[in-house]
Write a protein that binds this DNA or RNA. Structure first.
Lengths: 126, 126, 126, 126
DNA sequence: GTGGTCTAGACCACG
DNA sequence: GTGGTCTAGACCACA
Protein backbone atom coordinates (compact mmCIF):
# COMPACT_ATOMS: atom_id res chain seq x y z
CA UNK A 1 0.00 0.00 0.00
CA UNK A 2 1.30 3.41 -0.93
CA UNK A 3 1.15 6.21 1.60
CA UNK A 4 1.58 9.83 0.64
CA UNK A 5 2.54 12.49 3.12
CA UNK A 6 2.25 16.18 2.35
CA UNK A 7 4.56 18.01 4.72
CA UNK A 8 3.15 21.33 3.49
CA UNK A 9 -0.41 20.44 4.42
CA UNK A 10 -2.25 22.02 7.30
CA UNK A 11 -3.06 18.62 8.74
CA UNK A 12 -0.36 17.27 11.08
CA UNK A 13 1.79 14.54 9.60
CA UNK A 14 0.87 11.97 12.22
CA UNK A 15 -2.82 12.51 11.47
CA UNK A 16 -2.21 12.09 7.76
CA UNK A 17 -0.42 8.83 8.45
CA UNK A 18 -3.09 7.62 10.87
CA UNK A 19 -5.89 8.48 8.44
CA UNK A 20 -4.08 6.82 5.51
CA UNK A 21 -3.82 3.60 7.47
CA UNK A 22 -7.48 3.77 8.51
CA UNK A 23 -8.40 4.20 4.84
CA UNK A 24 -6.12 1.29 3.97
CA UNK A 25 -7.88 -0.96 6.47
CA UNK A 26 -11.35 0.11 5.37
CA UNK A 27 -10.54 -0.56 1.73
CA UNK A 28 -8.97 -3.93 2.51
CA UNK A 29 -5.60 -2.86 1.22
CA UNK A 30 -4.39 -3.71 4.69
CA UNK A 31 -5.76 -7.01 5.95
CA UNK A 32 -6.39 -8.50 9.36
CA UNK A 33 -3.20 -9.46 11.21
CA UNK A 34 -1.05 -7.97 8.48
CA UNK A 35 2.14 -6.64 10.05
CA UNK A 36 2.96 -2.98 9.74
CA UNK A 37 6.51 -1.83 9.03
CA UNK A 38 8.54 -0.83 12.05
CA UNK A 39 8.23 2.80 13.04
CA UNK A 40 11.86 3.35 12.21
CA UNK A 41 11.61 1.86 8.73
CA UNK A 42 8.38 3.61 7.87
CA UNK A 43 9.82 6.92 9.04
CA UNK A 44 12.81 6.46 6.76
CA UNK A 45 10.60 5.48 3.83
CA UNK A 46 8.33 8.49 4.24
CA UNK A 47 11.10 10.95 5.05
CA UNK A 48 9.56 11.91 8.36
CA UNK A 49 10.53 11.70 11.99
CA UNK A 50 10.55 8.42 13.89
CA UNK A 51 8.55 9.93 16.75
CA UNK A 52 5.88 11.07 14.33
CA UNK A 53 5.28 7.51 13.16
CA UNK A 54 5.15 6.34 16.75
CA UNK A 55 2.53 8.96 17.50
CA UNK A 56 0.38 7.77 14.61
CA UNK A 57 0.76 4.13 15.72
CA UNK A 58 -0.22 5.12 19.26
CA UNK A 59 -3.34 6.85 18.00
CA UNK A 60 -4.25 3.81 15.89
CA UNK A 61 -3.76 1.48 18.85
CA UNK A 62 -5.90 3.71 21.05
CA UNK A 63 -8.62 3.60 18.40
CA UNK A 64 -8.47 -0.20 18.16
CA UNK A 65 -7.20 -0.20 14.60
CA UNK A 66 -3.92 -1.97 15.29
CA UNK A 67 -2.45 -4.15 18.02
CA UNK A 68 1.11 -4.27 19.32
CA UNK A 69 2.82 -7.42 20.54
CA UNK A 70 5.47 -7.59 23.24
CA UNK A 71 8.26 -6.67 20.88
CA UNK A 72 6.20 -3.68 19.79
CA UNK A 73 5.64 -5.02 16.32
CA UNK A 74 2.37 -3.54 15.10
CA UNK A 75 -0.19 -5.45 13.08
CA UNK A 76 -3.69 -4.75 11.86
CA UNK A 77 -6.33 -5.60 14.46
CA UNK A 78 -9.04 -8.23 13.78
CA UNK A 79 -12.15 -6.84 12.14
CA UNK A 80 -14.84 -5.44 14.35
CA UNK A 81 -18.43 -6.26 13.64
CA UNK A 82 -20.27 -4.58 16.47
CA UNK A 83 -21.48 -1.77 14.25
CA UNK A 84 -21.54 0.80 17.02
CA UNK A 85 -20.63 4.32 16.07
CA UNK A 86 -18.49 6.51 18.25
CA UNK A 87 -20.05 9.76 19.50
CA UNK A 88 -17.11 11.73 18.14
CA UNK A 89 -17.87 10.42 14.65
CA UNK A 90 -21.49 11.53 14.94
CA UNK A 91 -20.33 14.94 16.05
CA UNK A 92 -18.07 15.25 13.03
CA UNK A 93 -20.82 14.09 10.69
CA UNK A 94 -23.17 16.66 12.18
CA UNK A 95 -20.70 19.47 11.55
CA UNK A 96 -20.11 18.23 8.02
CA UNK A 97 -23.85 18.23 7.42
CA UNK A 98 -24.08 21.77 8.77
CA UNK A 99 -21.38 22.96 6.41
CA UNK A 100 -23.12 21.25 3.52
CA UNK A 101 -26.39 22.95 4.44
CA UNK A 102 -24.67 26.32 4.53
CA UNK A 103 -23.30 25.65 1.03
CA UNK A 104 -26.82 25.01 -0.25
CA UNK A 105 -26.52 21.23 -0.53
CA UNK A 106 -29.92 19.56 -0.11
CA UNK A 107 -30.50 16.33 1.80
CA UNK A 108 -30.53 14.09 -1.25
CA UNK A 109 -27.27 15.45 -2.54
CA UNK A 110 -25.74 15.07 0.90
CA UNK A 111 -26.97 11.50 1.31
CA UNK A 112 -25.69 10.65 -2.15
CA UNK A 113 -22.35 12.18 -1.31
CA UNK A 114 -22.02 10.13 1.87
CA UNK A 115 -23.10 6.94 0.19
CA UNK A 116 -20.66 7.53 -2.62
CA UNK A 117 -17.81 8.07 -0.18
CA UNK A 118 -18.61 4.75 1.47
CA UNK A 119 -18.85 2.77 -1.75
CA UNK A 120 -15.69 4.26 -3.19
CA UNK A 121 -13.73 2.91 -0.26
CA UNK A 122 -15.38 -0.51 -0.48
CA UNK A 123 -14.44 -0.93 -4.11
CA UNK A 124 -10.94 0.28 -3.35
CA UNK A 125 -11.30 3.43 -5.41
CA UNK A 126 -9.52 5.74 -3.02
CA UNK B 1 -28.92 31.15 20.58
CA UNK B 2 -26.90 29.58 23.34
CA UNK B 3 -23.23 28.82 22.82
CA UNK B 4 -21.29 26.57 25.12
CA UNK B 5 -17.53 26.59 25.34
CA UNK B 6 -15.53 23.85 27.01
CA UNK B 7 -12.16 25.29 27.89
CA UNK B 8 -10.93 21.84 28.87
CA UNK B 9 -11.75 20.21 25.55
CA UNK B 10 -8.90 19.39 23.21
CA UNK B 11 -10.58 21.28 20.38
CA UNK B 12 -9.37 24.90 20.36
CA UNK B 13 -11.85 27.40 21.72
CA UNK B 14 -11.98 29.41 18.53
CA UNK B 15 -12.89 26.27 16.58
CA UNK B 16 -15.62 25.40 19.04
CA UNK B 17 -17.06 28.87 18.63
CA UNK B 18 -16.73 28.80 14.85
CA UNK B 19 -18.43 25.40 14.63
CA UNK B 20 -21.20 26.46 17.00
CA UNK B 21 -22.02 29.39 14.77
CA UNK B 22 -21.94 27.22 11.63
CA UNK B 23 -24.39 24.86 13.32
CA UNK B 24 -26.51 27.83 14.32
CA UNK B 25 -26.67 29.06 10.75
CA UNK B 26 -27.45 25.62 9.34
CA UNK B 27 -30.27 25.11 11.84
CA UNK B 28 -31.71 28.56 11.18
CA UNK B 29 -31.18 29.64 14.75
CA UNK B 30 -29.09 32.37 13.20
CA UNK B 31 -30.79 33.94 10.23
CA UNK B 32 -29.55 35.79 7.17
CA UNK B 33 -28.33 39.29 7.95
CA UNK B 34 -28.75 38.74 11.66
CA UNK B 35 -26.11 40.76 13.49
CA UNK B 36 -23.62 38.94 15.65
CA UNK B 37 -22.62 40.32 19.02
CA UNK B 38 -19.47 42.41 19.03
CA UNK B 39 -16.30 40.46 19.65
CA UNK B 40 -15.80 42.14 23.00
CA UNK B 41 -19.33 41.49 24.21
CA UNK B 42 -19.34 37.87 23.16
CA UNK B 43 -15.95 37.35 24.76
CA UNK B 44 -17.28 38.76 28.03
CA UNK B 45 -20.41 36.61 27.81
CA UNK B 46 -18.48 33.42 27.16
CA UNK B 47 -15.74 34.21 29.62
CA UNK B 48 -13.03 33.98 27.00
CA UNK B 49 -10.59 36.43 25.47
CA UNK B 50 -11.50 39.07 22.93
CA UNK B 51 -8.81 37.89 20.53
CA UNK B 52 -10.11 34.34 20.57
CA UNK B 53 -13.54 35.53 19.44
CA UNK B 54 -11.87 37.63 16.76
CA UNK B 55 -10.05 34.58 15.47
CA UNK B 56 -13.31 32.64 15.20
CA UNK B 57 -14.97 35.55 13.39
CA UNK B 58 -12.02 35.75 11.02
CA UNK B 59 -12.33 32.07 10.21
CA UNK B 60 -16.07 32.45 9.59
CA UNK B 61 -15.49 35.41 7.34
CA UNK B 62 -12.86 33.49 5.39
CA UNK B 63 -15.35 30.66 4.96
CA UNK B 64 -18.07 33.02 3.74
CA UNK B 65 -20.35 32.39 6.71
CA UNK B 66 -20.42 35.96 7.94
CA UNK B 67 -19.74 39.39 6.46
CA UNK B 68 -18.23 42.41 8.13
CA UNK B 69 -19.99 45.72 7.58
CA UNK B 70 -17.58 48.46 8.51
CA UNK B 71 -20.46 50.54 9.83
CA UNK B 72 -21.76 47.88 12.17
CA UNK B 73 -20.79 44.60 13.74
CA UNK B 74 -20.50 41.36 11.80
CA UNK B 75 -23.65 39.73 10.51
CA UNK B 76 -24.68 36.40 9.03
CA UNK B 77 -23.98 36.24 5.29
CA UNK B 78 -26.79 35.74 2.76
CA UNK B 79 -27.57 32.10 2.09
CA UNK B 80 -25.63 30.32 -0.58
CA UNK B 81 -27.51 28.16 -3.02
CA UNK B 82 -24.83 27.01 -5.43
CA UNK B 83 -24.75 23.56 -3.83
CA UNK B 84 -21.09 23.04 -4.57
CA UNK B 85 -19.20 20.98 -2.05
CA UNK B 86 -15.70 21.85 -1.01
CA UNK B 87 -13.05 19.19 -1.64
CA UNK B 88 -12.02 19.34 2.00
CA UNK B 89 -15.53 18.34 3.00
CA UNK B 90 -15.45 15.32 0.72
CA UNK B 91 -12.13 14.30 2.20
CA UNK B 92 -13.55 14.49 5.70
CA UNK B 93 -16.63 12.51 4.69
CA UNK B 94 -14.42 9.84 3.17
CA UNK B 95 -12.48 9.47 6.38
CA UNK B 96 -15.71 9.27 8.35
CA UNK B 97 -16.91 6.50 6.07
CA UNK B 98 -13.63 4.66 6.53
CA UNK B 99 -13.91 4.80 10.29
CA UNK B 100 -17.49 3.59 10.10
CA UNK B 101 -16.41 0.66 7.93
CA UNK B 102 -13.71 -0.26 10.42
CA UNK B 103 -16.36 -0.27 13.16
CA UNK B 104 -18.45 -2.74 11.19
CA UNK B 105 -21.10 -0.28 10.08
CA UNK B 106 -22.67 -1.34 6.77
CA UNK B 107 -23.58 1.07 4.00
CA UNK B 108 -27.25 1.29 4.89
CA UNK B 109 -26.54 2.12 8.50
CA UNK B 110 -23.99 4.71 7.42
CA UNK B 111 -26.34 6.32 4.92
CA UNK B 112 -29.05 6.40 7.57
CA UNK B 113 -26.65 7.98 10.02
CA UNK B 114 -25.68 10.72 7.58
CA UNK B 115 -29.26 11.41 6.61
CA UNK B 116 -30.26 11.58 10.26
CA UNK B 117 -27.48 14.08 11.05
CA UNK B 118 -28.71 16.30 8.25
CA UNK B 119 -32.38 16.16 9.22
CA UNK B 120 -31.66 16.72 12.89
CA UNK B 121 -30.06 20.03 12.06
CA UNK B 122 -32.86 21.02 9.70
CA UNK B 123 -35.53 20.48 12.37
CA UNK B 124 -33.41 22.36 14.87
CA UNK B 125 -32.77 19.32 17.01
CA UNK B 126 -29.15 20.03 17.74
CA UNK C 1 -20.43 61.59 -11.04
CA UNK C 2 -21.52 58.38 -9.37
CA UNK C 3 -19.65 57.16 -6.31
CA UNK C 4 -19.98 53.63 -5.02
CA UNK C 5 -19.11 52.67 -1.49
CA UNK C 6 -18.72 49.07 -0.41
CA UNK C 7 -19.15 48.96 3.34
CA UNK C 8 -18.10 45.29 3.33
CA UNK C 9 -14.77 45.98 1.68
CA UNK C 10 -11.48 45.73 3.48
CA UNK C 11 -10.55 49.25 2.45
CA UNK C 12 -11.78 51.91 4.89
CA UNK C 13 -14.78 53.87 3.65
CA UNK C 14 -13.01 57.21 3.81
CA UNK C 15 -10.23 55.85 1.59
CA UNK C 16 -12.76 54.53 -0.91
CA UNK C 17 -14.36 57.94 -1.05
CA UNK C 18 -11.03 59.75 -1.31
CA UNK C 19 -9.84 57.45 -4.09
CA UNK C 20 -13.12 57.75 -5.99
CA UNK C 21 -12.78 61.51 -6.01
CA UNK C 22 -9.15 61.32 -7.11
CA UNK C 23 -10.23 59.06 -9.97
CA UNK C 24 -13.01 61.50 -10.80
CA UNK C 25 -10.57 64.38 -11.02
CA UNK C 26 -8.07 62.43 -13.10
CA UNK C 27 -10.76 61.36 -15.55
CA UNK C 28 -12.16 64.90 -15.81
CA UNK C 29 -15.52 63.85 -14.45
CA UNK C 30 -14.82 66.43 -11.77
CA UNK C 31 -13.51 69.68 -13.20
CA UNK C 32 -11.40 72.49 -11.84
CA UNK C 33 -13.26 74.67 -9.33
CA UNK C 34 -16.29 72.40 -9.41
CA UNK C 35 -17.95 72.48 -5.99
CA UNK C 36 -18.28 69.27 -4.04
CA UNK C 37 -21.46 68.46 -2.14
CA UNK C 38 -21.45 69.36 1.53
CA UNK C 39 -20.15 66.64 3.80
CA UNK C 40 -23.56 66.30 5.38
CA UNK C 41 -25.36 65.87 2.06
CA UNK C 42 -22.84 63.47 0.61
CA UNK C 43 -22.95 61.38 3.77
CA UNK C 44 -26.72 61.14 3.52
CA UNK C 45 -26.53 60.22 -0.18
CA UNK C 46 -23.97 57.48 0.37
CA UNK C 47 -25.52 56.19 3.56
CA UNK C 48 -22.36 56.67 5.56
CA UNK C 49 -21.32 58.75 8.53
CA UNK C 50 -20.81 62.50 8.29
CA UNK C 51 -17.43 62.30 10.00
CA UNK C 52 -16.26 59.74 7.47
CA UNK C 53 -16.90 62.17 4.62
CA UNK C 54 -15.09 64.89 6.51
CA UNK C 55 -12.12 62.61 6.94
CA UNK C 56 -12.00 61.94 3.20
CA UNK C 57 -12.25 65.68 2.44
CA UNK C 58 -9.44 66.38 4.90
CA UNK C 59 -7.23 63.82 3.20
CA UNK C 60 -8.01 65.32 -0.21
CA UNK C 61 -7.22 68.81 1.04
CA UNK C 62 -3.94 67.60 2.54
CA UNK C 63 -3.07 66.05 -0.82
CA UNK C 64 -3.87 69.23 -2.71
CA UNK C 65 -6.79 67.71 -4.60
CA UNK C 66 -9.45 70.05 -3.24
CA UNK C 67 -9.57 73.47 -1.56
CA UNK C 68 -11.90 74.70 1.15
CA UNK C 69 -13.16 78.29 1.41
CA UNK C 70 -13.99 80.07 4.64
CA UNK C 71 -17.44 78.57 4.84
CA UNK C 72 -15.88 75.16 4.40
CA UNK C 73 -17.40 74.58 1.02
CA UNK C 74 -15.08 72.26 -0.83
CA UNK C 75 -14.23 72.56 -4.50
CA UNK C 76 -11.83 70.85 -6.86
CA UNK C 77 -8.39 72.46 -6.80
CA UNK C 78 -6.84 73.98 -9.95
CA UNK C 79 -4.87 71.55 -12.05
CA UNK C 80 -1.26 71.00 -11.23
CA UNK C 81 1.27 70.86 -14.01
CA UNK C 82 4.55 70.49 -12.17
CA UNK C 83 4.80 66.81 -13.04
CA UNK C 84 6.67 65.89 -9.87
CA UNK C 85 5.93 62.53 -8.40
CA UNK C 86 5.61 62.00 -4.69
CA UNK C 87 8.05 59.56 -3.07
CA UNK C 88 5.15 57.64 -1.56
CA UNK C 89 3.78 56.99 -5.05
CA UNK C 90 7.12 55.65 -6.19
CA UNK C 91 7.25 53.39 -3.19
CA UNK C 92 3.81 52.00 -3.99
CA UNK C 93 4.73 51.50 -7.64
CA UNK C 94 7.84 49.63 -6.58
CA UNK C 95 5.86 47.27 -4.40
CA UNK C 96 3.33 46.73 -7.17
CA UNK C 97 6.15 45.90 -9.56
CA UNK C 98 7.57 43.45 -7.03
CA UNK C 99 4.25 41.68 -6.71
CA UNK C 100 3.93 41.53 -10.47
CA UNK C 101 7.42 40.01 -10.73
CA UNK C 102 6.51 37.38 -8.15
CA UNK C 103 3.43 36.50 -10.23
CA UNK C 104 5.60 35.92 -13.25
CA UNK C 105 4.66 39.09 -15.11
CA UNK C 106 7.48 40.24 -17.40
CA UNK C 107 8.52 43.86 -17.90
CA UNK C 108 6.61 44.33 -21.13
CA UNK C 109 3.37 43.03 -19.68
CA UNK C 110 3.85 45.23 -16.63
CA UNK C 111 4.57 48.32 -18.71
CA UNK C 112 1.54 47.59 -20.87
CA UNK C 113 -0.59 47.17 -17.79
CA UNK C 114 0.53 50.50 -16.36
CA UNK C 115 0.07 52.31 -19.65
CA UNK C 116 -3.38 50.81 -20.06
CA UNK C 117 -4.40 51.93 -16.59
CA UNK C 118 -3.34 55.46 -17.42
CA UNK C 119 -5.13 55.60 -20.77
CA UNK C 120 -8.32 54.10 -19.42
CA UNK C 121 -8.61 56.95 -16.98
CA UNK C 122 -7.84 59.55 -19.62
CA UNK C 123 -10.59 58.33 -21.92
CA UNK C 124 -12.97 58.17 -18.99
CA UNK C 125 -13.25 54.40 -19.08
CA UNK C 126 -13.13 53.83 -15.37
CA UNK D 1 19.18 40.25 3.25
CA UNK D 2 18.73 43.23 5.51
CA UNK D 3 15.27 44.18 6.69
CA UNK D 4 14.50 47.51 8.25
CA UNK D 5 11.46 48.13 10.40
CA UNK D 6 10.25 51.60 11.31
CA UNK D 7 8.10 51.26 14.38
CA UNK D 8 7.07 54.90 14.08
CA UNK D 9 5.74 54.59 10.53
CA UNK D 10 2.01 54.60 9.98
CA UNK D 11 2.24 51.38 8.01
CA UNK D 12 1.77 48.41 10.36
CA UNK D 13 4.93 46.53 11.21
CA UNK D 14 3.69 43.24 9.84
CA UNK D 15 2.95 44.90 6.49
CA UNK D 16 6.40 46.43 6.38
CA UNK D 17 7.89 43.02 7.01
CA UNK D 18 5.63 41.33 4.46
CA UNK D 19 6.43 43.92 1.80
CA UNK D 20 10.15 43.75 2.51
CA UNK D 21 10.11 40.02 1.92
CA UNK D 22 8.08 40.40 -1.28
CA UNK D 23 10.66 42.90 -2.51
CA UNK D 24 13.41 40.49 -1.49
CA UNK D 25 11.85 37.70 -3.50
CA UNK D 26 11.26 39.88 -6.55
CA UNK D 27 14.86 41.11 -6.50
CA UNK D 28 16.24 37.59 -6.08
CA UNK D 29 17.83 38.45 -2.78
CA UNK D 30 15.66 35.66 -1.46
CA UNK D 31 15.76 32.60 -3.70
CA UNK D 32 13.39 29.73 -4.32
CA UNK D 33 13.29 27.24 -1.45
CA UNK D 34 15.52 29.44 0.66
CA UNK D 35 14.57 28.95 4.31
CA UNK D 36 13.33 31.94 6.27
CA UNK D 37 14.47 32.49 9.83
CA UNK D 38 12.14 31.14 12.48
CA UNK D 39 9.51 33.59 13.64
CA UNK D 40 11.09 33.80 17.08
CA UNK D 41 14.58 34.43 15.77
CA UNK D 42 13.51 37.05 13.28
CA UNK D 43 11.44 38.77 15.95
CA UNK D 44 14.45 38.91 18.23
CA UNK D 45 16.67 40.21 15.41
CA UNK D 46 14.23 42.96 14.45
CA UNK D 47 13.33 43.85 18.01
CA UNK D 48 9.66 43.17 17.46
CA UNK D 49 7.19 40.69 18.83
CA UNK D 50 7.03 37.04 17.82
CA UNK D 51 3.31 37.32 16.96
CA UNK D 52 3.91 40.22 14.62
CA UNK D 53 6.36 38.14 12.59
CA UNK D 54 3.87 35.30 12.57
CA UNK D 55 1.22 37.60 11.16
CA UNK D 56 3.52 38.68 8.35
CA UNK D 57 4.39 35.04 7.58
CA UNK D 58 0.69 34.17 7.56
CA UNK D 59 -0.01 36.93 5.06
CA UNK D 60 2.86 35.77 2.86
CA UNK D 61 1.63 32.21 2.97
CA UNK D 62 -1.89 33.32 2.07
CA UNK D 63 -0.44 35.20 -0.90
CA UNK D 64 1.54 32.19 -2.06
CA UNK D 65 4.93 33.80 -1.45
CA UNK D 66 6.16 31.29 1.08
CA UNK D 67 5.31 27.73 2.03
CA UNK D 68 5.38 26.14 5.45
CA UNK D 69 7.03 22.74 5.70
CA UNK D 70 5.92 21.17 8.95
CA UNK D 71 9.32 19.59 9.36
CA UNK D 72 11.27 22.80 9.05
CA UNK D 73 10.81 26.53 9.09
CA UNK D 74 9.05 28.45 6.34
CA UNK D 75 10.78 28.77 3.00
CA UNK D 76 10.38 30.80 -0.17
CA UNK D 77 7.81 29.27 -2.51
CA UNK D 78 8.75 28.08 -6.00
CA UNK D 79 8.51 30.79 -8.62
CA UNK D 80 5.21 31.34 -10.33
CA UNK D 81 5.21 31.75 -14.08
CA UNK D 82 1.53 32.01 -14.93
CA UNK D 83 1.78 35.77 -15.40
CA UNK D 84 -1.76 36.43 -14.25
CA UNK D 85 -2.30 39.68 -12.47
CA UNK D 86 -4.58 39.94 -9.48
CA UNK D 87 -7.51 42.36 -9.82
CA UNK D 88 -6.44 44.12 -6.64
CA UNK D 89 -3.09 44.93 -8.25
CA UNK D 90 -4.83 46.46 -11.26
CA UNK D 91 -6.98 48.53 -8.96
CA UNK D 92 -3.93 49.84 -7.16
CA UNK D 93 -2.17 50.60 -10.41
CA UNK D 94 -5.22 52.52 -11.61
CA UNK D 95 -5.23 54.65 -8.50
CA UNK D 96 -1.51 55.29 -8.89
CA UNK D 97 -2.11 56.43 -12.45
CA UNK D 98 -4.90 58.73 -11.30
CA UNK D 99 -2.66 60.35 -8.72
CA UNK D 100 0.05 60.79 -11.30
CA UNK D 101 -2.42 62.43 -13.68
CA UNK D 102 -3.51 64.83 -10.94
CA UNK D 103 0.15 65.76 -10.40
CA UNK D 104 0.49 66.64 -14.07
CA UNK D 105 2.52 63.60 -15.07
CA UNK D 106 1.95 62.70 -18.73
CA UNK D 107 1.61 59.16 -20.01
CA UNK D 108 5.18 58.86 -21.18
CA UNK D 109 6.57 59.96 -17.86
CA UNK D 110 4.26 57.57 -16.06
CA UNK D 111 5.17 54.64 -18.29
CA UNK D 112 8.84 55.44 -17.79
CA UNK D 113 8.34 55.58 -14.06
CA UNK D 114 6.65 52.18 -13.96
CA UNK D 115 9.25 50.60 -16.18
CA UNK D 116 12.01 52.07 -14.06
CA UNK D 117 10.48 50.68 -10.87
CA UNK D 118 10.37 47.24 -12.43
CA UNK D 119 13.93 47.31 -13.72
CA UNK D 120 15.34 48.67 -10.50
CA UNK D 121 14.06 45.63 -8.68
CA UNK D 122 15.34 43.24 -11.34
CA UNK D 123 18.88 44.60 -11.11
CA UNK D 124 18.68 44.49 -7.35
CA UNK D 125 18.84 48.23 -6.95
CA UNK D 126 16.28 48.52 -4.19
C1' DG E 1 -17.72 51.72 20.84
C1' DT E 2 -15.95 48.89 17.05
C1' DG E 3 -12.30 46.05 15.19
C1' DG E 4 -7.12 46.16 14.10
C1' DT E 5 -2.51 46.16 15.74
C1' DC E 6 1.22 45.36 18.91
C1' DT E 7 3.35 43.64 22.93
C1' DA E 8 4.14 40.10 26.51
C1' DG E 9 4.15 35.79 28.66
C1' DA E 10 2.36 31.18 29.06
C1' DC E 11 1.30 26.44 27.61
C1' DC E 12 0.86 22.82 24.30
C1' DA E 13 1.08 20.12 19.87
C1' DC E 14 4.27 18.81 16.62
C1' DG E 15 8.44 16.85 14.83
C1' DG F 1 13.00 24.14 19.13
C1' DT F 2 9.12 25.06 16.05
C1' DG F 3 4.65 27.13 15.30
C1' DG F 4 -0.26 27.28 17.28
C1' DT F 5 -3.26 28.75 20.85
C1' DC F 6 -4.85 31.46 24.65
C1' DT F 7 -4.76 35.16 27.80
C1' DA F 8 -4.08 40.09 29.07
C1' DG F 9 -3.59 44.85 28.53
C1' DA F 10 -2.55 48.77 25.67
C1' DC F 11 -3.13 52.05 21.79
C1' DC F 12 -5.06 53.55 17.52
C1' DA F 13 -7.93 53.82 13.22
C1' DC F 14 -12.51 53.83 11.94
C1' DA F 15 -17.32 55.13 11.98
Amino acid sequence: MIIKIDTYAEKPIYEQLRDSIILGIASNQLEENEPLPSARNLAADLGINFHTVNKAYDALRAGGYIVMDRRKTAKIAPKRTEGTVLPVLIERLTLNAAEAICCGVDERAFAALCFESYIKIKVGNV
